[in-house]
Write a protein that binds this DNA or RNA. Sequence first.
DNA 1: GTCCAGGGCCTAC
DNA 2: GTAGGCCATGGA
Length: 216
Amino acid sequence: MKIYRTLRQAFGHRGWWPGETPFEVMVGAVLTQRTNWGNVEKAIANLRDAGLMAPDALARTEPERLQALVRPAGYYRQKTARLLRLVTWLMDRAGGDIEALREVPTDELRAELLALSGIGPETADSILLYAFGRATFVVDAYTKRIMARHELIDSACTYDELKDFFESNLPADVELFKDYHAQLVELGKRYCRTVPLCGTCPLHPLLGDPVRDEEL
DNA sequence: GTCCAGGGCCTAC
DNA sequence: GTAGGCCATGGA
């Protein structure tokens, strides 16, 4: 927990995923794919203003209308199709009620989400962690970049390998996983965009001190 | 004007 | 199995 403690000390608790409801978090997870969050917020506001931030209403919306609302988030044709598939799944599976999925095992839900075209590992795990409250670690571009730059992982490792690396070396705690991922994104945004290895990065002082798996 | 964001899919070798 | 192209908008 050395890395986590260091980040948390630097940035404070983040907890993080903007969204008024679990359903909005789920929608945001699709809209934010390869997209700046500022653009996602515009699309979310459009959906909210149109009264479509609810599973049943969204599922019944015409694709053409949805495309116009989702447009600011980019890739709007793809994202419209992805949102409709996701919300249709939620309606079919649980009548649109995320709470009703409470008894379903996480692995099962993950497999069902991944089976939807347009929902890959990161989007599925974001939904599981931040919308469904499951202890699933989310790996994103920042996570991989940060871990590789600090030579904690092989830069060629896969999504699942990196996810397992975190999950097998941390207690399976939802709040910890949420905040840890948020911390890594914050670090990535501030220090890990262009500079290969930045001396002012809060993790920098740890480098002389070999970081072992259990010190994640 | 150029770069690129909290991915994922499809196609070619 | 993996590299490369494609999807699209808006802010720096």
